Simulated assay, not measured.
Amino acid sequence: MTRSDGGQNRPRKGFPEKRQAIMRASRKVFGRVGYQGASIDVIATEACVSTRTIYNHFENKEQLFATVLIESSEQVAAAHEAMIERHLGGTSSAADLEADLVGLAEDWVRPRPEFADHVAIVARINAEGENFPAALHDAWQKAGPLRVQRTLAARMARLAERGLLQVRDSELTAQHFVVLVTNTWGRGRTGFGALSDAETHEIAAAGVHAFLYGHLPRD
């Protein structure tokens, strides 16, 4: 793959509903077999459209993959931003802080079926490591993970302004939170989907407890 525009080219022609069918099918196929294993023919079959229809919307498989990755990342990021606001937007006292953070952590680690294909694509990207195109990797990070990190960091900074947290570097504080609440070592090999509600709460509460130990104001 050589493109560096993050797949942001507009479709050349075609109906929006056909494009959405292609995007849904592409997420499934790319998540199932990866970029190298996917083909336009397979995606067309999955989407119940002709290969010509796909080429009416996208120049080639490379542009299709880039578009799927970036748009899907933006959707996941928007969901995480709404989650952050829902749990931390109204936090105004030390009494609310721990419960609100635990609620956020539980939602963070709980699997979202609608994003299962995106998670599968990301897993394949991580497995490819340095072999994944750097420009597309950067575009994905900007559209998804870094966008969420900035949103969470901004919320952590506001909590610090209210005297509820001790924060020297808000982005590093956001990273600490995510790492601590997503640690599932020893919790089974099949990931978050295998966790019960009780296990999810236990992981979230333990992660938040460790986070607050490092970030509560010392006085």
Rank of each mutant, 00 (worst) to 15 (best):
A25R: 13
E106T: 06
F65V: 15
E199H: 02
R168I: 13
T45H: 11
A127Q: 14
A77I: 01
Q166F: 06
S73I: 09
M156C: 02
A123M: 00
H80L: 11
K28W: 10
V29C: 04
L164D: 07
R86D: 05
I43W: 12
A38P: 07
E114P: 04
L216G: 00
R112K: 15
V167C: 10
A47W: 07
D5F: 08
D5Q: 12
A21H: 01
Y55L: 13
E199V: 10
A116S: 12
H201T: 10
E59V: 14
L152H: 08
F115S: 11
L152K: 11
E62H: 04
W140S: 12
L164C: 05
Q149I: 00
E106I: 09
A206I: 09
L212C: 08
T151E: 14
A25W: 03
A174G: 09
G193R: 14
G37E: 10
D138Q: 13
W185E: 10
A206C: 07
A25G: 10
E71G: 10
L195K: 08
I121V: 13
A153K: 04
A25C: 11
L195N: 08
A204I: 01
I54P: 00
A127D: 08
H137I: 06
C48F: 09
E85I: 06
R12G: 01
E59S: 04
Q175P: 00
W108Y: 14
G186A: 10
L104S: 11
